[in-house]
């Protein structure tokens, strides 16, 4: 498959560039390179969460159990990327702000996101009947996702932020990036996204196969 080789080469090139070009943010210095990895992880976390919710809505509409499988795969991947984003963020916080955890608005938001995922998996573990599990977890994930806009708009007003407002780390695209930094950042974002969809595709197929296996054994 040509795109897999392309992904492999381009990601490798991106990694090399991310460490050999000048640091993206002069004031923070060398550690600001983590931004090429931290933000794409957070981005995938949100995408996966949104996909999980969309598949949940689809499930409630069609009652097709495959939609529930897809929602589960997206949620699992989203949880992993969320964890990665939290870890990379905490490392960066330690280096620049002096402590791993400060309850900064974004830290609070991602923590709540992790809790929602955790609760989602806990709920799935607590229901035995498959259709019931699918409906209940679908409702929960939709209901939980509704609070995310509140997280984005309300939490920053309640807790003082440490995320610099007009530096390169800001997600509102207000930053001043040099063309080089911009190229690396957006390639990283794109490559991470492609990688995520590849993982999602594999997960979906594994889930489908497991389901067919069970059906064959039943007959």
């Amino acid at each position: 498959m040509w795109w897999k080789s392309a992904l492999f080469i381009l990601m490798s090139v991106m990694i090399v560039y991310s460490f050999t070009t000048p640091a993206p943010q002069k004031m923070i210095g060398e550690s600001s390179r983590i931004f090429y990895y931290h933000i794409p992880q957070a981005w995938i976390c949100v995408i996966a969460f949104a996909m999980s919710m969309i598949y949940s809505i689809k499930y409630l509409k069609t009652k097709d159990i495959h939609e529930d499988d897809k929602a589960l795969v997206a949620a699992k991947l989203g949880f992993v990327f969320c964890l990665l984003a939290t870890l990379s963020g905490a490392t960066f916080a330690k280096v620049t702000w002096g402590s791993f955890w400060n309850w900064d608005p974004r830290e609070t938001s991602i923590f709540i996101l992790l809790l929602i995922y955790g609760a989602y998996f806990a709920l799935r573990g607590a229901v035995d009947v498959e259709e019931k599990r699918a409906s209940l977890s679908a409702v929960y994930s939709i209901f939980a996702f509704i609070t995310v806009p509140f997280l984005i708009f309300i939490v920053p007003r309640l807790v003082p932020s440490l995320h610099p407002e007009d530096s390169i780390i800001d997600e509102n695209m207000k930053f001043t990036m040099s063309p080089m930094v911009r190229t690396i950042f957006f390639s990283s974002l794109g490559l991470f996204t492609i990688f995520y969809f590849w993982l999602f595709n594999i997960g979906k197929r594994v889930q489908l196969m497991a389901r067919n296996q069970v059906e064959q054994e039943d007959f």
């Binding site: 709540i112 929602i116 806990a122 607590a126 229901v127 929960y140 209901f143 939490v155």
Partner: peptide
Amino acid sequence: IVAAIIAKASTKGALFAVLSFPILMVLLMS
């Protein structure tokens, strides 16, 4: 609605607080 969800689950235990807390956290903060 979270109460309605957990009433259908087979093991209830601490599930109610676990499921409610992430949803309530924004509310509690404000």
